[in-house]
Computed example of a mutant assay.
Amino acid sequence: MTDLSAFPVTQRWVAAYPDRLQLYSFPTPNGIKVSIMLEEIGMPYEAHLVDIGQNESKDPAFVSLNPNGRIPAILDPDGPKGQPLLLWESGAILVYLAEKSGAFLSADPVIRYETLQWVFFQMSGIGPMFGQLGYFHKFAGREIADRRPFERYLAETQRLLGVLDARLTGRAWLVGDGGGEYSIADIATLGWVRALEITYQAGALIGLVKYQQVTAWLEKCLSRPAVQRGLSVPVRP
């Protein structure tokens, strides 16, 4: 049996199956990227709930894994050259799992870099902007009297949805010609678009129904059994 005792995170979140990849996460739009990917590729893993509502991502044991104190993060006991690998940042984890499994990231250089550009588009634009809109519309930010930040993030969210909508015109997925092919770009993005309605209750505010290509794409994503399984991993308290 694999010995993970050298890693402090495994003292706080004890591994029942240390031979499996260990996932430390919470089912946020960022967190579910990794659980969905793991479900899609069928890799055995063990999920540990890091309750961000209780500030557990700032626990020293978790920070020993991710110094940035954010979910998700993984500990793969069978990393490169057979050595354990600690990895954080959801985009980096998606690339790692895609390369390890040979799935959802094309070996064709053109399609590979096309995929990565849409993953980075999500990481740099969609995630931060949609998240800020959620903060100012649904959470504590709505109490701020100055409406300019809210208006800025609303406008930018709508602009980014327009970019996605244009990209998806004539495509089933974000990457590839013709119908395209499902990839880590879709996995990275789907949770954030879903959150606009489900988490932030901002669908009507944004006019989400206007982005018909985006809503049709999201429906296709959510119809995948692996996506449905990954949406609730780890189970919320």
Results as ranks from 00 to 15, higher is better:
S223D: 10
F139C: 07
Q83D: 11
L154A: 02
S106C: 06
A6P: 10
R20A: 15
S5H: 04
G125I: 01
Y182L: 04
I74G: 00
V95H: 08
E197P: 04
P109T: 01
A47S: 11
V110T: 08
L49Y: 00
Y45E: 03
A216R: 04
A61R: 06
K220F: 07
A226W: 01
L87Q: 15
R236A: 15
P237L: 07
A188G: 09
N55D: 14
Q201I: 04
G102D: 10
G207Y: 00
T157V: 05
P149N: 15
K81P: 02
E156L: 03
W118Q: 15
F104R: 08
Y153F: 11
G125V: 00
N55H: 14
Q228N: 10
W118V: 08
V110Q: 14
S25A: 10
P44D: 09
V193K: 00
V119D: 09
R148E: 15
V209Q: 00
A185C: 14
A47M: 13
P109A: 09
F7M: 11
P8C: 08
G230A: 09
I206M: 01
K100Q: 12
V233L: 06
G31Q: 07
V63G: 06
A16D: 07
F62I: 14
Y96M: 12
A15C: 12
S35L: 03
A202T: 03
S223E: 04
G176E: 03
L87W: 05
A92R: 13
I52T: 11
F136I: 02
L190D: 03
T28N: 11
P27E: 10
V214C: 12
R152C: 14
Q117E: 14
I52A: 06
A103I: 10
L97C: 10
V95M: 14
G102F: 05
R148Q: 11
L218N: 01
L174T: 02
A16E: 11
I74F: 00
W173A: 12
E40W: 14
A92F: 09
